[in-house]
Design a protein around this nucleic acid. Structure first.
Length: 733
DNA sequence: AAAAAAT
């Protein structure tokens, strides 16, 4: 769709669609949005074909309601709940008409969106045959042998006509042909609902006695902490003698090796790489309390099989919340949820660790909502309608915008079920809508540190009544660059408020926050959540670095969703281009893209419109996309935690997944150490361009299963094995 | 190196 058809008043024509004026279905009326009533339906936001792609994600990303607004004034998530349902049911029109017919004007937003004709897919044709590109089935088998390949006439010199690279793919020249030409692509459901019920497989659980009273006593050595204003007198007395703690129920100490690193003096042993916990190397202030968090984490392990027969109501959640969870697809609690929900409801501070994809969002989101509701009731303020300017009472912080958005997708319906309002506060989108929501009154703020601080400084966000603060990916939020803003934000919340820290890799790195803000936190993890019980198959290919892009392409040339990690934004772009050169539809996700594109590109993967997403570590943590079955680490991570989080984008909720890490020869030792820290045992395989890589993956899979079993035995009988030795341990087979 | 504010 070329930019043509000048609209009235010099408004940008980008979103104007001529077909619209020709009388598409239900388009006759002139309503809000027609700038000039005499003009034939100038309503840039209502151009028919694009509507289908105006997804929930995009609405939410722009600060709008996840709901489809039926009329003005109900566009933010906090304004629309309930009304949509009842309004929609009375509306005699078809669903599509309801969806599109009355949409309020949103020119200020739509104009932010790139014009369709600048879409990545509309780029100028390259010199090879485009028609083949999108039909993977018809394309002749490709030899990945470099010399064999037809010279790529689309080599970089052809691209001189491209503008300087801004990573903004919308700068590209328009392409003439229509998107609808793509009928030769394999059929695909473009209509996947991101909020589809969780398809978590829960059949592998064993029975459990859900008895909270036989929990081990906790140990504390924090007598120096100031008393907390909160009323905690009803708590059971606690022991302060750490040695009294019972041994872990689970025989194997799955953190034993990591603890080796934490021991004083280990640093001097020469085995510790300098980049391990760099922040703490430079910050001796943690030294005395280093092990505290870790020790407690281990003390509170819940058995993974202990949730059999327990439902959310048993854990103390109210009927509305339980129903909301059911609608989200969560019928019964996962272990980490069973562990943390009752404790959060008690009002205690909680540190929670559950492996990637284990359901942490609900583990903190549902009880936070329920608790907010209870506090509200106790204070006698419940039941009233929304009050203007009601200050937020819960805050959820996340490290990336995409994660904040995703958390809101889970928490908002839960909050809505009890009449509470949420809003997202993050950067990259105009703040007006977010501020508007705050002015109307919001109960739960979900966002990223930068914009939250910004709005605080502007005096538009007041956290003084926040009594529940959640840090998702809490260890990451304590990394250099994040920690200080996070501290400043938490200091703005109500003193004595409840704090919940969650992460799959929660470790002593959160000590800075724990010491300042938490009081006698309960620490929970799920026992036996180690790599041996993982559904992820790990592989390492040792490659020649100059073949990296081609090997990535060869690996990504497959059915199924693939997530590729790159260390830098520039390489993510480069790889994306390279994949497209191979005819693999791929999009990028990194911080050089504007937020609209980030959201859109991620949605391209979740919706299945592309199979390959090339991302920086912006996508490493927390992001859930159904059915990613292959993660390719084009660049190996530097930290074992990064490895675990990236790998955790696949194999979620008991599904199978595979991770392939590409490393050059000279990185084998470092990689081996990293994997040791992550407690993953993998054989390295030398691989060359042109090898049957997928065959290699399949061959590896069977072997790994056997090895994994062996590793458990080795480690459980020798928890003191040094990390450096771990990957050298050869299975008996 | 990346992420997180907007300018």
């Amino acid at each position: 769709m070329p930019k043509n058809k000048k609209p009235k008043g010099g408004r940008p024509a980008a979103n104007f669609d001529p077909s619209y004026a020709k009388g598409g279905k239900g388009r006759g009326t002139q309503k809000a949005g027609s700038r000039s009533p005499g003009h034939r339906g100038y309503r840039p936001e209502e151009e028919a074909p694009r509507k289908e792609r105006w997804s929930r994600d995009e609405r939410v990303a722009s600060g709008r309601s996840p709901h489809r607004a039926d009329r003005e004034g109900r566009a933010d998530s906090s304004a629309g709940w309930g009304a949509e349902r009842s309004g929609a049911s009375r509306d005699p029109r078809s669903r599509d008409d309801r969806r599109y017919g009355d949409r309020p004007a949103r020119p200020h937003y739509r104009e932010d969106r790139p014009a369709r004709s600048y879409d990545r897919d509309d780029r100028a044709p390259r010199s090879f045959d485009r028609n083949d590109r999108n039909d993977r089935n018809d394309r002749p088998a490709r030899s990945y042998d470099r010399d064999d390949r037809a010279p790529r006439s689309f080599d970089r010199n052809d691209r001189n006509d491209r503008p300087a690279r801004s990573y903004d793919r919308d700068d590209r020249a328009p392409r003439s042909f229509d998107r609808n030409d793509r009928n030769d692509r394999p059929a695909r459901s473009y209509d996947r609902d991101d909020r589809a019920p969780r398809r978590f497989d829960r059949d592998d659980r064993a029975p459990r006695s859900h008895d909270r009273n036989d929990r081990a006593p906790r140990s504390y050595d924090r007598n120096d902490r100031p008393a907390r204003s909160h009323d905690r007198d009803d708590r059971a007395p606690r022991r302060f003698d750490r040695d009294d703690r019972p041994a872990r129920v689970h025989g194997r100490d799955d953190r034993g090796q990591r603890r080796e690193f934490d021991r004083p003096g280990f640093r001097d042993s020469g085995r510790r790489p300098s980049n391990f916990f760099p922040a703490r190397d430079a910050a001796p202030r943690f030294s005395s309390n280093d092990d505290v968090v870790l020790e407690r984490l281990e003390a509170e392990a819940i058995q993974a099989d202990a949730v059999e027969g327990v439902d959310f109501a048993d854990l103390g959640l109210g009927g509305n919340v339980v129903r909301a969870l059911r609608e989200l697809g969560a019928e019964s609690p996962f272990p980490i949820q069973a562990a943390t929900i009752p404790v959060v409801l008690e009002g205690r501070d909680v540190l929670g660790r559950g492996k990637t994809g284990s359901g942490k969002t609900i583990a903190f989101g549902a009880p936070a909502v329920e608790r907010l509701m209870q506090l509200w009731t106790e204070s006698g303020k419940a039941g009233g309608r929304r009050q203007m300017g009601r200050k937020p009472r819960a805050l959820i912080l996340a490290p990336t915008r995409e994660l904040a958005l995703q958390i809101d997708r889970t928490v908002q319906p839960i909050a809505q079920s009890v009449g509470l309002f949420t809003t997202q506060i993050y950067g990259g989108v105009p703040q007006g809508r977010q501020v508007g929501a705050l002015q109307r009154g919001v109960d739960i703020v979900i966002g990223t540190p930068g914009r939250i601080e910004d709005l605080i400084e502007q005096g538009r966000l007041d956290l003084s009544e926040v009594v529940i603060t959640v840090l998702d990916e809490a260890d990451h939020m304590c990394d250099l660059g994040f920690l200080e803003p996070v501290q400043r934000i938490i200091r703005r919340t109500a003193p004595g408020g409840q704090k919940l820290l969650f992460s799959a890799t929660l470790d002593k790195g959160v000590a800075a926050l724990v010491d300042e803000f938490l009081v006698e936190p309960a620490v929970h993890e799920v026992a036996g959540e180690d790599q041996a019980s993982s559904t992820i198959d790990h592989r390492v290919f040792v490659i020649d670095n100059r073949d990296k892009r081609d090997i990535v392409a060869q690996l990504a040339q497959r059915e199924g969703k693939t997530l590729v990690f790159s260390r830098t934004r520039a390489f993510a772009e480069d790889l994306t281009d390279h994949l497209e050169d191979y005819g693999i539809r791929a999009v990028a996700l990194h911080g050089d893209l504007n937020q609209a594109k980030r959201t859109r590109n991620l949605h391209q993967l979740t919706s299945g419109r592309v199979d390959v997403l090339v991302a920086t570590d912006v996508a490493a943590r927390g992001i859930h996309v159904d059915d990613i079955d292959l993660v390719i680490q084009a660049d190996a991570p530097d930290e074992y935690k990064t490895y675990l989080h990236r790998a955790g984008r696949t194999g979620r909720a008991g599904k199978e997944g595979r991770v392939v890490t590409l490393i050059p020869r000279n990185r084998q030792r470092r990689m081996s150490e990293l994997l040791g820290r992550a407690e993953i045992d993998v054989d390295f395989v030398d691989v060359r361009l042109g090898d049957d890589l997928h065959g290699e993956l399949e061959r590896g899979a069977a072997a790994v299963e056997v090895e994994t079993v062996e590793v458990v035995e080795v480690e459980s009988s020798d928890v003191t094995a040094s990390v450096a030795d771990t990957t050298d341990v050869e299975p008996a087979s």
